[in-house]
Simulated scan of single mutants.
Amino acid sequence: MIDHENDGTAERPIHMPVVSYSETVRHFIEDVYTFAEQHQEMELTRYREILKENGMEPGMNDMENVDIFNLNAQCVLALMMEVVRAERFNEGAIFNFFKSGAMLKCLERLDCLV
């Protein structure tokens, strides 16, 4: 949501944008955490190290431009975890990852690997 009503003056300060996710996206976030918890063998608590081991530096610009179709399942899942965790410090990170199509590519890659 973006404030289009206020002009930034002291009387009418602009309110910072807020991302409000749908129930589906909130469930998706929960599912990423649940999967990581139930599949300790994937070591997704090490998601940043996994990304670095695969030549990726954490950061949303790099994450959205990765060639997903050359990554193994662990790395794709680590990428998804990076995005979910990034939301805590960068509101809208998940939104941007979905909007760019990168999340769909991750899911398609995982589907190919199963």
Rank of each mutant, 00 (worst) to 15 (best):
1 M>K: 05
42 M>Q: 07
90 N>D: 02
114 V>R: 00
111 D>V: 05
29 I>S: 00
104 L>D: 10
68 I>D: 09
83 V>E: 02
100 S>V: 12
37 E>Q: 13
32 V>K: 01
83 V>N: 02
46 R>H: 11
87 E>P: 02
18 V>E: 07
19 V>F: 07
4 H>R: 09
43 E>F: 07
29 I>C: 01
80 M>E: 06
81 M>D: 03
10 A>T: 12
90 N>G: 00
9 T>D: 10
93 A>Y: 00
71 L>N: 10
19 V>K: 03
93 A>C: 00
10 A>N: 14
37 E>P: 02
30 E>F: 01
2 I>R: 06
81 M>S: 03
26 R>A: 03
106 C>M: 14
91 E>F: 02
46 R>L: 11
10 A>Y: 15
24 T>F: 09
19 V>E: 07
11 E>C: 10
91 E>R: 06
113 L>I: 15
7 D>W: 13
110 L>K: 11
23 E>C: 09
22 S>D: 14
87 E>D: 01
107 L>I: 15
22 S>T: 15
76 V>E: 10
44 L>F: 10
38 Q>K: 13
14 I>C: 10
94 I>H: 01
51 L>Y: 02
34 T>C: 02
104 L>G: 12
67 D>Y: 11
76 V>L: 11
64 E>P: 05
77 L>Q: 08
105 K>E: 14
22 S>P: 12
52 K>F: 12
84 V>Q: 01
25 V>Y: 04
30 E>T: 03
28 F>E: 06
35 F>L: 03
91 E>C: 02
31 D>Q: 00
95 F>M: 09
40 Q>V: 05
21 Y>F: 11
36 A>D: 10
26 R>T: 04
71 L>T: 13
112 C>F: 04
101 G>L: 09
48 R>I: 14
101 G>N: 15
70 N>Q: 09
22 S>C: 08
54 N>C: 06
33 Y>M: 04
92 G>K: 02
57 E>G: 01
105 K>R: 15
82 E>W: 01
61 N>D: 14
58 P>V: 03
24 T>I: 13
43 E>W: 05
67 D>V: 08
33 Y>G: 01
108 E>L: 08
17 P>K: 05
52 K>G: 08
3 D>G: 05
8 G>F: 11
8 G>A: 14
98 F>S: 05
